[in-house]
Simulated assay, not measured.
Amino acid sequence: MTATFPTDISGEALHKDIRISEFGAQKALGILQSSGKENAGVRVFIKSGGCSGYQYGMAIDDRELEGDTIVVDRGVKLLVDRMSIDLLRGCEVDFVENMMGGGFTVNNPNATSSCGCGHSFRTDGAQSPDGEGSGGCGSH
């Protein structure tokens, strides 16, 4: 069963499993509109790997899968699979720009340590899953 959470009149999620910043929403809406996919959203997921144990992933997705948590925040549909939601609960998707370019990032209150590159993280001091993620930032 897919879980969908209501939004208030401004489109901000009332249930805060995951949310998106104002700037992140502006960037995501532009990308979603140009994707050509009707009713598409941003799928945010976790996979094993990276230098700290887990790695973030994002993709444009027009499918709602069994067990997905779906949150509409600031007009952006965020989709999270059932395996990733516990590690992403309370997170905020943001877009950052710096001298090296720009991109989406995840501000994760569940991460107890993260890689210097910001693409991978570990929770509660646990070892990397399956012994992965010990090779430094170049191992993504």
Score class of each variant (00 low, 15 high):
M1K: 05
A3N: 11
A3F: 05
A3T: 04
T4Q: 13
F5R: 01
F5I: 00
P6T: 02
P6E: 13
P6I: 00
T7D: 15
T7N: 14
I9D: 15
S10A: 11
E12F: 03
E12R: 10
L14W: 02
K16I: 00
K16W: 02
I18Y: 00
R19T: 07
R19I: 02
R19E: 09
I20S: 12
I20E: 13
I20Y: 06
S21R: 04
E22D: 15
E22W: 03
F23H: 13
A25C: 12
K27F: 11
K27D: 13
A28R: 04
G30H: 08
G30V: 03
L32M: 08
Q33A: 14
Q33M: 08
S34C: 08
S34Y: 02
S35T: 06
G36Q: 12
E38S: 15
A40K: 04
A40P: 12
G41H: 02
G41V: 00
V42H: 03
R43M: 07
R43C: 07
F45M: 07
F45W: 08
K47N: 12
S48D: 14
C51A: 15
G53D: 09
Y54H: 11
Q55C: 11
Q55V: 03
Y56R: 05
G57Y: 05
G57I: 03
M58Y: 06
M58S: 12
A59S: 15
A59H: 05
D61A: 14
E64F: 06
L65G: 05
G67E: 09
D68H: 01
D68M: 00
D68N: 09
T69R: 07
I70L: 12
I70P: 05
I70N: 11
D73H: 08
D73C: 09
D73E: 10
R74Q: 13
G75C: 10
G75V: 03
V76Y: 09
K77I: 02
L78I: 06
L78Y: 02
L79D: 06
L79K: 08
L79A: 09
L79I: 09
M83D: 14
I85E: 07
D86M: 06
L87I: 00
L88P: 05
L88T: 00
L88D: 06
R89I: 03
G90Q: 05
E92H: 00
E92T: 05
F95A: 14
V96C: 14
N98E: 14
N98C: 13
M99I: 04
F104I: 01
T105R: 10
P109H: 03
P109M: 02
N110M: 04
N110V: 00
T112L: 04
T112S: 15
T112H: 07
S113P: 04
G116N: 14
G116C: 13
C117R: 06
C117P: 10
C117H: 09
G118N: 10
H119C: 11
H119R: 09
S120E: 08
F121H: 05
R122A: 15
T123F: 05
D124A: 12
G125F: 01
G125Y: 01
G125D: 08
G125K: 01
A126T: 04
A126E: 15
A126L: 13
D130G: 13
E132Y: 09
G133Q: 05
G133F: 01
G135E: 15
G135W: 03
G135F: 05
G136H: 07
G138D: 13
S139R: 00
S139D: 13
